[in-house]
């Protein structure tokens, strides 16, 4: 019989988690965890809810960063005026997670901790150089979201560690977009997700990154490919070449949403479209 506990502070939560790495799990919105339990894939002995811990949800903005609490729902993120103004590609990604029922209950922290490859927000966060704030039995630390997911459903979080939030630098000159492709019904999880983030110095490209998610085990950034476009204008030829190179470079997963061949094709198309949207 699974125990359900609701600690009041993070230290208590971390201690319970660290006590039994396999048996004790954090539950946030629960949309992913409960599904796995019902499918009989996991049988936690204790579910550690973070529902009663203060300061874990909400969106804050200071001069340099926007910080989103781990327990903030996708709906809240998508609706936030702050996020829409400063991180519109994240608002877009969160507004398209699953379906409205999942968005109302599922949280960003849970989404990141689950490290399901077929997710939307991580792809955007990696492209925005987002930081992941973590607390554990040995204290707090910060790591790039890009270093969080290490494999299927696997993160670099240590025993007892809990994600408390995500923060992103504010940058007036940055333009970022998210392209989501679903191969089946509109409420399907993504077959391929691509984020493109660019920064211009006048008309010439100062920074550019492209991240591919959902088609691969963990979101992958292709700085080595996009570097070739820096200093240029990101014209049609450059966009096409980058798209083709990335389509070739990925090692795609095969599942009910598409084969490896198909994901390569669609990735190239999505990269091209994302680059079109960030080009001048």
């Amino acid at each position: 019989m699974t125990r359900f506990v609701e600690p009041r502070d993070l230290q208590e939560a971390c201690a319970i988690l660290a006590d039994d790495e396999w048996g004790n799990k954090v539950i946030s919105g629960g949309t992913a965890l409960v599904l796995m339990m019902r499918q009989g894939l996991i049988a936690p002995s204790t579910l550690v809810s973070i529902g009663r811990i203060d300061d874990l949800d909400g969106i804050r903005k200071d001069d340099s960063r926007i910080t989103i609490g781990a327990r903030t729902t996708h709906t809240a993120i998508a609706a936030s005026a702050e996020v829409q103004r400063w991180l519109p590609s994240l608002a877009d990604a969160c507004s398209r997670v699953g379906n409205v029922r999942v968005r109302n209950v599922g949280t960003l922290g849970g989404n990141l901790a689950e490290a399901d490859y077929a997710a939307d927000p991580p792809t955007v966060l990696v492209g925005l150089d987002a930081l992941c704030h973590v607390i554990g039995p040995h204290g707090a630390r910060v790591l790039p979201v890009a270093d969080l997911a290490t494999g299927f459903y696997t993160t670099s979080l240590g025993p007892g560690e809990i994600i408390t939030g995500v923060s992103v630098l504010i940058d007036e000159h940055r333009v970022s977009v998210y392209e989501k492709y679903v191969s089946r019904s509109s409420e399907d999880r993504p077959c391929v997700g691509v984020s493109a983030t660019a920064r211009y110095d006048g008309t010439s490209l100062d920074q550019l990154n492209v991240v591919v998610g959902a088609a691969v085990a963990v979101p992958r950034r292709f700085d080595e490919v996009t570097a070739s476009a820096l200093g240029g204008t990101l014209d049609e030829t450059a966009r096409r070449d980058i798209a083709a190179a990335i389509g070739e470079a990925i090692d795609p997963i095969e599942d009910a949403r598409g084969s490896a061949w198909y994901r390569r094709k669609v990735t190239a198309v999505l990269v091209k479209r994302a680059l079109e949207r960030v080009s001048r």
């Binding site: 499918q39 009989g40 490859y117 299927f152 085990a217 997963i253 095969e254 599942d255 009910a256």
Partner: peptide, 14 residues
């Protein structure tokens, strides 16, 4: 059994 139903893509990749 149950693992056979769990995301065949993940099982195959693993």
């Amino acid at each position: 059994g149950r693992l056979g139903q769990f995301g065949s893509g993940v099982v195959a990749s693993t």
